[in-house]
Every structure is written in C-alpha cells, then in structure tokens.
Computed example of a mutant assay.
Amino acid sequence: MRILDTHLHLIYPDRFNYPWLGGNAALNRPWSHGDYFAEALALGIESALHMEVDVAEADMMGETEFVLGLPRIAGAIAACRPEHMNFVDQIEQLSEHAHVKGVRRILHESPDELSQSDLFIENIRHLPDYDLSFDLCLRADQLHLGVALAQRAPDVTFILDHCGNPDINGLGLDPWRTALAEIAHIPNVVGKVSGLVNHCNPGWTAQTLRPYVEHMIESFSWDRVVWGSDHPVATVTGGTLTDWVAATREIIKGATPDEQAKLLHRNAERIYKV
C-alpha cells in the first residue's frame, strides 16, 4: 500500500544555515532528496511533505521555495515565528505558494511560555484564513501546552508530531499515555505517528514501538492519524527508513485495508489538502 510521508527533512548545508546541526554530528551532513527517494520508492513511499528543518530565520523562505521545486515533494510545512509582530505578513507571503500546506514553530526546545502568549495565540488564529495547519512539536511533559493552545485556537487544525515524544528509554508509557489521551480529546488536533525511534535504544523492534503506536491510534482513532518518517532524524539510533516502514507495517498488519490506507496516505491527503 502506498505511503505519503508527512514528515521528511532534507538537509542542504551548502545552501542553508542550520545552527542546531553544529552540535549534532550524526546529522551534520547533506541529506538529499535523491538519496531519500532512492530508498523510499522501494518501500511504497510515492511522495512526501517536507518538514522545515529549523534553518536560520534568514533562510526560512528560501528553504520552502527550494524544496517545493523538487520532484515528488507534494507540499511543505514551512518554518514560522508566531511570536513576531509581522507573522501575518509572513504567512501571506507563504500563501502565495500553493503547495505550502502548513507551518511549524519548534516548541520542544523553546520556553514553555512562548506558545502561551496572547500574541502567539492571536497570530495562530489567522492560519485558517490562509488554509494552513500548524504542526505541534512538544515534549511529553509539555503536552498540556498543546491542549491549552488548541483550545484557545479552536478553528486551527493542529498536527501533533512524533506521538508527543514519549520518553521510551526512560519513563516509558506513563505519564505520557494519560497526557496523550488528553490532547487527543481536543477535536482540532490530529496525531502524527512518527519520531518514536529517536527515543529508543539501538536494536529497537516493532514490539518496542507497538504499545505507543497502538495507543496513538486508540486515542485519536483511525480517522485522525497520519504517518511520517522523520527522516533522517530517525536514523540517529541506528535504524533506517526501511526499518521504520517495516515496523509500521508489522504493527498495523492486523488492521483492515481501509484503516491502513487512512494512516498511510488518505488522512494526510485530506488534512494537509494534498
């Protein structure tokens, strides 16, 4: 069954500045479109949405425009700064590109208060006017911030990245399990099954991930989940794109073809309007 990857990162250090990569030796090199699709197409991944890679602010628009010109990139989730007064100008510029499907502001490494300010929330409320969604990247201990944000911007579609980043190697299922269920109760939040392997020790298997994926689907339902590779970040614990796709297919093999299609491509096409 075909897959639409909703969370592909492409890294071009010769084109853009990635300040955070200086402290990440495993990722601090080129990760190209060609290399990704050489592996992805054999796995049934026919297209992808590019997820912003936290480039320097001066490169944000350039990154978006560049990736939208690449084959099989069905759209982009662009970097944004809702804490800035000129946010509406920024999304107006982004909206000139038909294949910008949403925006993201990295929050899991930001102060908690950033996403809770009146300016941030007022700016986010403008997104439906431009047919844009907002990807939420929060740590498991920050999921209550996502609840508050989604409740104060009920007309915005939020996509919770990486299953809410459970601490698989540490705390395990709890208290993530309860916090995840709480944010899943917010009707304008969608869950993205991605980013789990980053929290595992090398040697993880489908069984390592199964309780987290199954709780995501149980909490959000098959109608409100999408799938993402988080490539190449998902490779830092020793796995590959091929490993993550194989694990996903193993975990959901007991689901109906219709349910599998919802997770792997159909929901994403509807939610991101691909």
Results as ranks from 00 to 15, higher is better:
residue 61 M to D: 01
residue 25 A to C: 02
residue 79 A to I: 00
residue 59 D to T: 03
residue 19 P to T: 06
residue 158 F to R: 10
residue 173 L to T: 08
residue 54 D to H: 03
residue 95 S to N: 15
residue 225 V to M: 15
residue 9 H to D: 04
residue 29 R to Q: 15
residue 212 Y to C: 04
residue 26 A to L: 15
residue 230 D to R: 05
residue 18 Y to N: 09
residue 152 R to C: 00
residue 83 E to C: 02
residue 68 L to R: 06
residue 224 R to A: 05
residue 189 V to S: 07
residue 132 L to C: 12
residue 16 F to I: 09
residue 248 T to M: 14
residue 148 A to L: 10
residue 187 P to Y: 03
residue 114 L to H: 02
residue 161 D to Q: 04
residue 123 N to V: 10
residue 222 W to D: 15
residue 51 M to I: 12
residue 169 N to C: 11
residue 214 E to P: 00
residue 162 H to V: 11
residue 257 P to T: 10
residue 206 A to T: 04
residue 42 A to T: 02
residue 55 V to W: 02
residue 70 L to H: 00
residue 188 N to V: 04
residue 236 V to P: 06
residue 202 P to L: 08
residue 209 L to C: 14
residue 143 L to M: 14
residue 193 V to S: 05
residue 237 T to E: 13
residue 13 P to N: 03
residue 163 C to N: 14
residue 27 L to Y: 07
residue 46 E to A: 10
residue 69 G to C: 06
residue 28 N to E: 02
residue 247 A to I: 10
residue 2 R to T: 09
residue 78 A to L: 01
residue 128 P to W: 11
residue 165 N to I: 01
residue 210 R to H: 13
residue 204 W to Q: 07
residue 224 R to V: 12
residue 106 I to F: 01
residue 71 P to E: 05
residue 94 L to F: 03
residue 123 N to F: 10
residue 142 Q to F: 07
residue 236 V to W: 06
residue 48 A to E: 00
residue 122 E to T: 12
residue 223 D to K: 14
residue 265 H to K: 06
residue 155 D to Y: 04
residue 198 N to Y: 01
residue 20 W to Y: 09
residue 65 E to I: 10
residue 226 V to T: 14
residue 84 H to I: 00
residue 180 L to K: 00
residue 191 G to A: 09
residue 257 P to Y: 12
residue 54 D to P: 00
residue 228 G to I: 14
residue 240 T to M: 04
residue 195 G to E: 02
residue 236 V to A: 11
residue 115 S to P: 00
residue 81 R to I: 00
residue 232 P to R: 06
residue 18 Y to Q: 13
residue 192 K to S: 07
residue 201 N to K: 13
residue 268 A to Y: 07
residue 186 I to F: 06
residue 126 H to S: 12
residue 232 P to V: 09
residue 249 R to D: 11
residue 110 S to A: 14
residue 62 G to I: 01
residue 186 I to R: 04
residue 262 K to R: 15
residue 271 I to M: 11
residue 117 S to I: 02
residue 160 L to F: 09
residue 251 I to L: 04
residue 236 V to F: 12
residue 136 L to R: 06
residue 25 A to V: 14
residue 109 E to V: 12
